[in-house]
Design a protein around this nucleic acid. Sequence first.
DNA 1: ACCGTCATGTCAGCCTCTGACATCACTATG
DNA 2: CATAGTGATGTCAGAGGCTGACATGACGGT
Lengths: 196, 196
Amino acid sequence: MSASDITMMRIMGRWQGGASERLKEAALGLFSTRGYDRTTVAEIAAAAGVTERTFFRHYADKREVLFVDQTEFERAFLSSLPETGDDPMRLIAAVLDGAATLFPEERRAWSRARQTVITTNVALQERELLKMSTLALTLTRALTTRGIDPTSAALAAESGVTVFRTAFTVWVTETETRTFPAIQQTVLTRLHALIG
Amino acid sequence: MSASDITMMRIMGRWQGGASERLKEAALGLFSTRGYDRTTVAEIAAAAGVTERTFFRHYADKREVLFVDQTEFERAFLSSLPETGDDPMRLIAAVLDGAATLFPEERRAWSRARQTVITTNVALQERELLKMSTLALTLTRALTTRGIDPTSAALAAESGVTVFRTAFTVWVTETETRTFPAIQQTVLTRLHALIG
DNA sequence: ACCGTCATGTCAGCCTCTGACATCACTATG
DNA sequence: CATAGTGATGTCAGAGGCTGACATGACGGT
C-alpha cells in the first residue's frame, strides 16, 4: 500500500474508502484461485488487512462482495430509458443500447474472470439471478409509470433482461470477435424473428 | 399420527417415508405463522418429531424444503414437449399448455399460501429464481436436441418460463375469476402482440 | 438366532452473520 | 491548545446453518 493510498483513506477526515476496495479485490482474487467455498470471510478480511467483522460492515453477506457495482449498473439501464414513447419493446431496445456501452472490450477479460467464479458456484448464481430479477422489476415499474399496462410492462422488461443475459453469456464465452453491442443487437433481432 | 400412518412408515421394512412429509408440512406451517427467518431448523425438526440432523438428511438446506415438488414439476414440463416440430415458439406453447394442467383451481389456495411465504423472503426468492433458471436450461437443452440453434433455443425457453411466471403471479394474486390455463393463454398472446 | 441394511440419534465443530461495547484517528469548536 | 463529537474499526460472545464421524435401533432375509 502506497503513501497516496493512505492519503485516499483519509478523505473527509475519516478512514473510509480503502477497505471496501481492498476487500473486493482480495475476495475476487481468493475466489478465483481457491474457489468460493474454500474461501472463508476471515481469510478475505485478513488479506485486506481488516477484521472479519469489518467485512460484514461493508458487505451484507459473503456473496454481495461480487455484486456491488450492480447499483451503478442498474442506474445505467434506467438512464437510457427515453422520456417519451409508448411502444414497450422500442423503449426496451433503447435501454439495451444504452446499457451496452457499459461493456467495452477492455472489460471483457475482467467480466470473464468474474463470470467464471459465478458460474462455478450455485449460491452465486442465485444472487446473480436475484439481481437480474430486481433489474427487471425496476424496468417494469419504469414502464408502467409511462402508462403501459402491468402485464405488457413485465413481459417487455423480462424479455429485455433475457436478451441482455443471453448476449452477455455469448460475449464472455466466445473468442474475441464481435463486440458486446453487436452481439446484443443480433440477439434482439433473433428474438423478434422468433416470436414475431 | 394415526396407526395407519405408522404402517405407512414401515413400507419395505424401513422407517422411511413419514419423516419427509412431516418435515415439509411442519416447515410450511411454521414459516406461515412465525415467518421464515424466525423459524429455526431445530424447531421444524422438533415439530416433526425428529432431530435437526435428520432434517438435513432429507433436505439439502433449510430453503429446499419448500421446493421438493419441483422435480415432478419439471418433468411435467418436459413430457409435454412434442416429439416433432421445428418452430421453437410452437413447441414452447405446447409445453405451457401441458404444464397448465398442474395448476387446477383446487391448488390455488395452497399455491397462494406457499407464494406468500416465498415473496416475503429474499433468500426464498433466490431459490425460486434458481429453480426457474434450471427449468429454462432444461428446456433449452431439449430444444437444441431437436436441432434448434442454441441462441434461439435459449430465447424461446426463457420466454416460455417468463410467460409461465407472469401468468402464475397473476393467478395467485387476482381474485378467483379466470383459471390458470386461461390466464397463461392470455399472457402468451400478449407476448406475441408485444414483440411481433 | 444372526446378519446386513437403512433411517435416525448423538456429538463435535466450522462457518456465516449479528449485537453490544470499546477504541482510535481525525475534525470541529471554543 | 484542549475537548468533545463523529465515523470506522477492533473485540467478544453467541445464535443458527450445515457437515462429518460414529453409535443405535428397527426391520427383512437367511
